[in-house]
Design a protein around this nucleic acid. Structure first.
Length: 577
DNA sequence: TCACAGGGCGCC
DNA sequence: AGGGCGCCCTGTGA
């Protein structure tokens, strides 16, 4: 059932067999060099591998050609169970903070060195993963009738950790030559270090001339603001959206400077040198890195990859990129969570916002879109605020759910996602705010009300964003298994002469067949041999539907559909409409 | 010289 | 006066 990978002695890691009720049934110490081979052999029995931290344990296995199907990431699951409202009464939740609560460390914790070991925080190696697994099994028991949901969340979170490590190992196929040509085209040739590219330098000169500010550094906000005001422009900031409606000759060159400067700084040649090697962009994903359950990324800015450079993402020769995007994921999630049949019906339309118009709730698609976004984010101004009453009349259960989440947050209480990820409590330390302390310690001040409303917007969005993240994790977990099954099938066809039973010892690398290459909250990219692209596209649709059933049950009368748009392309730039 | 906050902007 | 992020740059204070 479970095989716990524990840090043993210098002799190597210890593998501890544990049954479903937490009872140890055997253990063995493995020489470090044999770990990957041993895991590969044991994988045939499909155990759930249990380790402290997938990000540390799994990459070495992958590097040795060992893929695993299932795991428990104790650190990630601990974080969920510690704060979950479903398991609040458990010993795990009640215990004081331990090494399992340590924040993730960006660089791996260096080994304790002579004399300093007692000053270092408890390293993961000193924690007992078997005891932690038992504590987690016990905690889930406290969820009672909700144990299934909690288990589903833990499984999804752990599967996500496997996916994240595999995404980094696979990398995004990246054509450095295309990226370089794109940069040269927009900015001019790569300059010597310390110099601006030609186009950027020309725009900077234009801006200085048109503002009559010969020494202006356009990268300096304060300098730029001063120069703009001196030229008679009544601006309060240097933000592009504030500048773009102003009629002055400097605006054009300035906006172009900002755009190009951003490209250079964020995804220019330096980024290319740092993050792309051997034809792959390998970002680090951080599962659970956002409180809502969304992933974060650490270095490389994977989750902010601008559309400007996506043309450099190209399938390998003979391969294709299959890009799938969940259409209007968050409003559909809200419809499913709330059981709002009218909104589910609106979601039957290929475009949910058109469905909302067709239902007679609002007049235009734009009103539907901004109204729904406003409802989920807590917008009160402009179009969102205007159409909210109409949406509330048409979809009382859906809107009521987010309104209730907002009220709960304003009171200072916690909310939970569909699978039971629970929001943090608001910081209670507003009093130590220094000079303002004397009037913020009384409740009911303007600042208190603003803070409460802000936290209400957070909890309002938390339930939707967090549940959407759970859906996306489930989607990827299902997809990951199906893609690997396809890889196994293909390799079996190629090696038909191999004796039955020999397959396990020679399981193919997951990168030999269709595999996940990129993830972006509600969008995934699969890199696949071209002849399988259509089949992969169908898997992407089917797994999205299955993720919906896994979370919300079979789509009955009020069933919500989760359609995905699928594009089979050579270049990522061609995937968007 | 370094760490940090804030402006600004990229993504969902 | 709209939720969640990461990263670059500048300016400031230790």
């Amino acid at each position: 059932m479970y095989v716990v990978v524990a840090q043993g002695s210098d002799a190597g890691p210890t593998l501890v067999d544990v049954d479903a009720s937490g009872v140890e049934t055997g253990r063995v110490t493995v020489p470090p060099d044999d770990l990957a081979r041993t895991v590969r052999e044991r994988e045939a029995a499909r155990p759930r591998w249990v380790w402290a931290n997938t990000a540390a344990a799994y990459p070495p296995l992958l590097a040795a050609g060992t893929r695993v199907e299932r795991c428990v990431d104790l650190r990630l699951c601990h974080a969920i169970l510690r704060s979950s409202a479903l398991t609040a009464a458990s010993a795990l939740a009640q215990a004081p903070a331990s090494g399992w609560d340590a924040p993730r460390s960006r660089p791996p914790v260096p080994a304790a060195q002579d004399g300093l070991f007692d000053l270092a925080p408890a390293p993961a190696a000193t924690l007992d993963p078997v005891a932690e697994l038992r504590a987690q099994l016990d905690a889930v028991g406290h969820a009672g009738s909700e144990a299934n949901r909690q288990n589903l969340l833990l499984a999804a979170e752990s599967a996500g950790a496997l996916v994240a490590a595999e995404l980094t190992a696979a990398g995004v196929p990246w054509r450095e030559d295309v990226h370089d040509a794109l940069l040269s085209d927009l900015l001019g040739p790569r300059p010597a270090p310390g110099y601006r590219p030609r186009v950027l330098e020309e725009r900077a000169r234009d801006v200085r001339r048109l503002l009559d500010a010969p020494d202006l550094n356009p990268d300096s906000g304060p300098e730029l603001l001063k120069a703009l005001r001196h030229a008679g422009l009544g601006v309060s900031s240097t933000r592009s959206w504030e500048l773009k409606d102003i009629d002055h000759p400097v605006i054009g060159p300035l906006l172009e400077y900002k755009k190009m400067s951003r490209l250079l700084a964020a995804n220019g040649w330096h980024w290319l040198d740092t993050w792309v090697a051997g034809g792959r962009f390998r970002p680090t994903y951080v599962p659970g890195g956002v409180v809502t359950g969304r992933w974060a990324s650490d270095g490389g800015g994977a989750l902010q990859l601008p559309h400007q450079v996506r043309d450099a993402v190209r399938a390998d020769p003979g391969w294709k990129l299959v890009v799938a995007d969940a259409a209007q994921l968050e409003p559909r999630i809200l419809a499913a969570m709330s059981g709002d049949a009218a909104m589910a019906t609106a979601g039957r339309a290929a475009d949910m916002y058109e469905g909302i118009v067709a239902a007679g709730a609002v007049e235009t698609r734009t009103h539907a879109k901004y109204g729904m976004l406003g409802a989920m984010y807590g917008g009160t101004q402009g179009v969102s605020g205007q159409v909210l009453p109409q949406l509330t009349r048409a979809f009382p259960r859906a809107i009521g759910l987010v309104e209730q989440a907002a009220r709960t947050g304003e009171r200072g209480d916690v909310v939970s996602t569909w699978l039971g990820r629970t929001s943090p409590r608001p910081a209670a330390d507003a009093e130590d705010a220094g000079p303002r302390g004397e009037w913020s310690e009384r409740s009911g001040t303007q600042a208190d009300l603003a803070r409460a409303r802000s936290w209400g917007r957070f909890t309002r969005n938390f339930i939707v964003q967090g549940t959407a993240a759970e859906w996306a994790l489930s989607w990827m977990a299902i997809l990951r298994q199906q893609l690997y099954a396809l890889t196994l099938r293909e390799s079996g066809a190629a090696g038909a002469a191999t004796a039955p039973g020999a397959a396990a010892a020679t399981s193919p690398d997951f990168r030999a067949g269709p595999h996940l290459a990129f993830f972006l909250h509600d969008e995934v990219m699969v890199h696949t041999p071209a002849h399988l692209a259509d089949e992969v596209g169908e898997l992407l649709r089917a797994s999205a539907a299955e993720a919906g059933r896994l979370l919300f049950g079979p789509p009955g009368e009020a069933g919500v559909e989760f359609p995905v748009t699928v594009a089979i392309v050579d270049s990522y730039a061609d995937a968007k409409d």
